[in-house]
């Protein structure tokens, strides 16, 4: 596995975690819990954006592995 595909894998894991958090935030009845889920979801979003840029950067670096 190339670095690029590993980072891509991590990126999609985070994406899925973010989506799960979003459903949990919708499902809960408790205001405080909902707030925490939303905050963590926001953190994950920043990480996701950073990783997305990194994926683009890596694809440029290793054009031979472009998928």
């Amino acid at each position: 596995m190339t670095v690029s595909s590993q980072v891509k894998g991590c990126f999609s894991s985070i994406k899925s975690a973010e989506a799960t958090l979003e459903t949990l935030a919708v499902k809960t009845n408790d205001q405080e819990t909902e707030q925490i889920f939303k905050e963590v979801q926001h953190t994950l979003k920043t990480v996701k954006n950073d990783l997305e840029n990194q994926v683009i950067y890596l694809t440029k670096e290793e054009p031979q592995y472009k998928s």
Binding site: Q6, A17, L44
Partner: peptide, 24 residues
């Protein structure tokens, strides 16, 4: 399983990122 899975996958991502930081 939804919640334990979420926690596990977040932990895995965190470990992966640490690994990338060491490898690059």
């Amino acid at each position: 399983t939804e919640k334990p899975l979420l926690l596990a996958s977040m932990k895995k991502c965190q470990a992966d990122l640490e690994l990338f930081a060491l490898a690059t």
